[in-house]
Computed example of a mutant assay.
Amino acid sequence: MIAVFLAAFDALPLGSFTGRAHGRQYLVTRQDFSGAKSQKLVAREMGGTDYISLNLYRLASGARLKPCEMPTQKVVDFVLDLRPDKIEDHP
């Protein structure tokens, strides 16, 4: 399961973006620190109250997921369902 989660997490764009998960719209920020050995994702539901926050550590012994004051399953389900909005290039 961790490999599926990591693949979904790594597919998300760095920086801030909007996207949908579980039928709701979110403003999401994904950041890398220390050469991507430490990563953070924060998402706020637009027009709602849901909030997602997690830290991900890429250690020699394997990845460690640390949700911020919420169940691990909530952040895993969110990342697996999250679909970033397409960014349109305008001339």
Rank of each mutant, 00 (worst) to 15 (best):
D85C: 05
G47F: 04
Q31S: 03
K66G: 01
S53E: 13
A36V: 00
Y57I: 06
I2E: 13
A43Q: 06
A63E: 07
D77E: 15
L65A: 09
R20Q: 14
A21P: 10
K40C: 04
F17D: 10
K66D: 08
P71A: 14
R64L: 13
L14Y: 15
G35H: 04
R58L: 10
A63W: 02
F17V: 14
D50W: 02
D81I: 01
K37C: 01
L6F: 03
F9C: 08
I2Q: 14
Q25N: 07
F33T: 03
K37S: 04
G35R: 02
S38F: 10
P71I: 00
P71H: 11
H90D: 10
L12S: 07
R44F: 05
A8T: 07
D77Q: 12
N55L: 09
D77K: 11
K74P: 06
R24S: 12
V79T: 09
L6R: 10
F5R: 01
F33M: 12
R58N: 05
V79R: 08
G23V: 01
Y51G: 02
A8L: 06
V28I: 03
L27N: 08
G47C: 07
F17K: 09
P84E: 13
P91S: 11
P13L: 11
L12P: 02
L14Q: 14
S53C: 11
P13A: 09
A21T: 01
A63H: 05
G47R: 04
A63D: 12
T18F: 03
I87E: 12
Q39P: 00
E69H: 12
A11I: 11
A60Y: 11
D32S: 02
R64C: 09
G47S: 09
R44N: 08
T72F: 06
A63C: 08
M70R: 09
K37G: 02
G19A: 07
D50P: 04
H90Y: 15
F9V: 05
G15R: 14
L59I: 04
N55A: 12
G47M: 05
A36P: 00
Q73W: 01
I2W: 11
L59F: 03
L65Y: 06
V28W: 00
S53H: 10
G48R: 10
V79H: 11
R44A: 07
Y51I: 08
Q39Y: 01
I87Q: 11
D50Y: 06
D50N: 13
A8V: 05
T29C: 05
D50E: 13
E88T: 09
R24L: 07
L59Y: 01
H90E: 12
I52C: 03
L14C: 11
G15E: 15
D77H: 10
K40Q: 13
